Amino acid sequence: MTAPIDDLAGWTPESLGEPGAVRAVVTAPDPVLSRAGSEVDPRDPEVVRLAADLIATMRVSPGCVGLAAPQIGVGAQVFCVDVTGHPKAVTVHGAFALCNATVVEASRWRPGREGCMSVPDLTGDVKRASRLVVEGQLPGSGVTVKFAADGFEARALQHEIDHCAGMLFLDRVAGAHAVYQRKTYL
């Protein structure tokens, strides 16, 4: 059974009694980043703790709008996203985590620049769907949710789902000409 999108809104690890710990982010070429994560039982207390850690780590990382379990060294299909306040956001579902997520529908493909905490020195142009329907399970309850996302939130979801499948944005760029040195500001 798929729950209405309202079940996604307002979900936080804190609502399940898990404050979350900040974890170290692994960087390429760590092998965990190139292996597909295992499906998880979203009701497992370890998975709930993992989701809480992902959100805590995302929240303390400037500019971060999503983080997947492989990025903190765990080969599991769990990630979090929060595009709240981002100037490119069209749809905003707040901070949430999903387990075993899949893309159900994808349309309106557009190129866009992406960066990643696990590839800190580079950005790249990646063509992604700007309209997306995703289905996944909420940590804790295991409730399956299905929802639509547009624009930047759709891009962030695809980026994190790719991480769970063992892919980096670099695996999706058109070639070396579409990879750039990240600008640093002093």
Rank of each mutant, 00 (worst) to 15 (best):
A69N: 03
V74C: 05
A76K: 15
A95Q: 12
G85A: 06
R108G: 15
V81C: 12
F96C: 06
R110L: 14
P70M: 00
V81E: 07
Q71D: 00
C99N: 11
G94W: 03
G94P: 08
L98Q: 02
G115K: 01
P111W: 07
T102P: 08
G115C: 02
P70H: 02
G94R: 02
G112K: 01
V65S: 05
A101K: 07
P120M: 10
G75Q: 12
P70S: 04
E105V: 14
A101F: 09
L67Q: 03
T84C: 10
G66S: 01
C64E: 07
V119F: 04
D82I: 04
V119A: 04
A89T: 03
D82P: 02
A97C: 15
G73I: 06
G85I: 09
K88L: 15
V104C: 10
A95F: 09
Q71R: 02
P70I: 02
T84A: 13
G85C: 09
G66Q: 01
G63E: 01
E105P: 07
V65I: 14
P111I: 00
A89P: 03
H86V: 07
V104G: 10
V104R: 14
V119L: 09
N100T: 10
V81D: 01
N100D: 11
Q77F: 04
G66H: 04
K88S: 15
P87D: 11
G66T: 03
F79R: 06
V78D: 11
K88E: 15
C80A: 13
E105Q: 13
A69L: 07
G73K: 08
C116H: 01
V74E: 15
G73F: 01
V74I: 15
H86Y: 12
V65D: 06
V103G: 04
V104P: 12
S118F: 00
R108H: 15
